[in-house]
Write a protein that binds this DNA or RNA. Structure first.
Lengths: 203, 203
DNA sequence: AGATAACTGGGCTGTCAAGCCCAGTTACGG
DNA sequence: CCGTAACTGGGCTTGACAGCCCAGTTATCT
C-alpha cells in the first residue's frame, strides 16, 4: 500500500488527499480507463514525481480512491443528521435524495459504478470492493436495527435480507437509470424495495 | 453500422457471427478494455483483414456484441420452454437458475456488466444499451401480464413497476455478488423481489 | 466465365500511457 | 541547523494497441 504508512507530515497528507480526491472526481466523470496519470497530475496541481511518490502504480491509487469513495458513501447514505435511515420516512427521503437527474447522468453510484469497472480491470482490488459493500451493508443494518428496536419492524424481520434488497435495488436501479438516462428505473427500484421493507412492518 | 447491410453471402454472415460470438465470450471473461483485436482475431480463427472488413472500428464490433448479448439474454431469461416466467413458481426457478457460482464469478450478468463498462468508455453506444434493457423489460412484462391474466396477480398490480423491481434486483444483486464472490447477495435480492411481486397476488 | 465477396498474412505508423531516472529547489520538524 | 520530506520539471524507454495499406489467393453468386 504505497509509501503511505511512513512518516507523512501534515502537508504530505494534504497533498496525498488532494490527489485522491481529484482522481476520484475524474474517474467518476470519465471512468478509470480514460483517466491517466497526466490528467490527475495536472488537475491536482502536482508534479509527476509527487504522484508516483505517493502512488507508485495505478493500482495503489485506485485502491486509495476506492476507499475514499466508500468513506464518502458512508457519509452520503444517511438522511438523519447523524446515522443511517432509521424509519420508513427516512428511507423515503434517502431514496428521493438520490433520484436526481445529475446523479443518474453523471455516472451512477460513485462507488458501485467504479466497482463494476474495477472488477473487470483485472487488478487485484476485490478486497477493497467487498469491504466497501460490507461497510455499506453494516450501516444499512444499523438503521434497520433501530427500526426494529423502535417497533417499526416486526421482531422476526430478517435485517440482513432487507439490507441486501435495498442495496441491490439501489445499484441495479442506478445501472438501469444510467442506461436509460432517466431516473424512472431507479425510482421504481427504490420505491419497490422500501415498500417491501414495509411489508415487514407492524402496521 | 459497418459493411453489414451490404450483400453478405451465407459464408460471410457465418464468419461475421463467429467473430461476434468470440468477441462476446472474450469480453465477458476479461472485460472490454483487456480484449484487443488480436485476441478476437486469433480466437475466432480469422485474419486481421477480415476483422476490419466486418467491423471497421471497435465501436462497431462492440455494438454488434451488445446486440448479440441482448438477444442471448432474451433466450436465457425464460424458464418455461416457450416464453418468459409467467407464474411465481416460474419466477423462482428463473431466479435459481441464475444463482450459480460460475455465473457470479465469471463476470455477472452477460449484458449488464458489459453495459456498465461500455457506459464508462465514452463510446456512443447508449442507444444499444437502452434498447437491450427495454427489450428485457418488455419480456418480463409479458410474463407478468400472463400472471395477471391468469389471476395470479391482482388487476391493479403495476406491471411496469414490478418489471423494474425484478430487473434492478437482478442487476444490483449480480454486482454485489461479483464484489463479494458469493451468491448470497444475489439470492437475497431476487428472493426479495419475488416476494414483493407476491404481495400483489390474489392469495 | 466474370464480377465480387471472402480470405490470408504480412507490415507499418501514430498514439497514448505507465513506469522510471535524474538533478535540483523548497519546506518542515526535531 | 541539519536531515528528511515535499516538491518541480523535465526526459526517456517500453509496451500496447488501433487503424490502415498492400499484394495476392480462394470461394461464391449470377
Amino acid at each position: 500500500m504505497s509509501v503511505t504508512d511512513r512518516r507523512l507530515t501534515r502537508r504530505g497528507e494534504a497533498t496525498r488527499a488532494r490527489i485522491v480526491e481529484t482522481a476520484a472526481g475524474l474517474i467518476y466523470a470519465h471512468g478509470v480507463a480514460r483517466t491517466n496519470n497526466e490528467a490527475v497530475r495536472s488537475a491536482a496541481g502536482v508534479s509527476g514525481s509527487q504522484l508516483s511518490h505517493y502512488f507508485p502504480d495505478k493500482e495503489s491509487l485506485l485502491r486509495a480512491v476506492l476507499r475514499w469513495r466508500a468513506d464518502a458513501m458512508m457519509g452520503l447514505h444517511q438522511t438523519p443528521p447523524q446515522g443511517p435511515p432509521d424509519s420508513i420516512a427516512a428511507l423515503r427521503s434517502w431514496a428521493d435524495s438520490n433520484l436526481t437527474d445529475e446523479t443518474v447522468r453523471d455516472g451512477g453510484c460513485s462507488f458501485g459504478s467504479l466497482a463494476a469497472e474495477v472488477m473487470k480491470s483485472g487488478l487485484d482490488l476485490n478486497d477493497e470492493i467487498a469491504g466497501g459493500f460490507d461497510r455499506w451493508k453494516a450501516q444499512l443494518r444499523e438503521g434497520l436495527t433501530a427500526m426494529r428496536a423502535a417497533g417499526v419492524l416486526r421482531p422476526d424481520a430478517d435485517l440482513e435480507h432487507l439490507a441486501y434488497v435495498l442495496m441491490a435495488a439501489f445499484q441495479g436501479g442506478m445501472l438501469l437509470s444510467q442506461g436509460a438516462r432517466d431516473v424512472t428505473p431507479l425510482r421504481n427500484a427504490l420505491y419497490g424495495a422500501i415498500a417491501y421493507v414495509e411489508t415487514f412492518g407492524n402496521a
